[in-house]
Amino acid sequence: MPDSIDIRYVATLARIALTDDEVEVFGRQLGDLLGHVNALAELDTASVSATAQVIESRNVLREDRPAPCLDREKVLAQAPQRQGAFFRVPRIIAE
């Protein structure tokens, strides 16, 4: 199993700004952790199915029936920044 982690790339995906110190410390700690989890390579999983959920339920659905919504003011009151009835965010740079 691979055991290196590109901390800067992963932090970019996760949208967390890291200091150089954090890159160093987390890199070491997570490298160690990967060393430990690599023990899983010892298991023979060739013919094993993957478990995403332990419960065996299927088709747990809801009827297409309207339910009450939240009060807009109650929600917007907690917005970090609002403008009128909208949530406001800094400019979006297209990617």
């Binding site: 809801r62 297409d64 309207p66 339910a67 919504c69 807009r72």
Partner: peptide, 20 residues
């Protein structure tokens, strides 16, 4: 209604009124 909640699925409307 919406895909995963009971908010009304309709075009337009006052902003941020069909939310839960």
């Amino acid at each position: 209604t919406k895909m995963f909640c009971g908010c009304v699925n309709a075009f337009g409307g006052e902003p941020n009124t069909k939310i839960c």
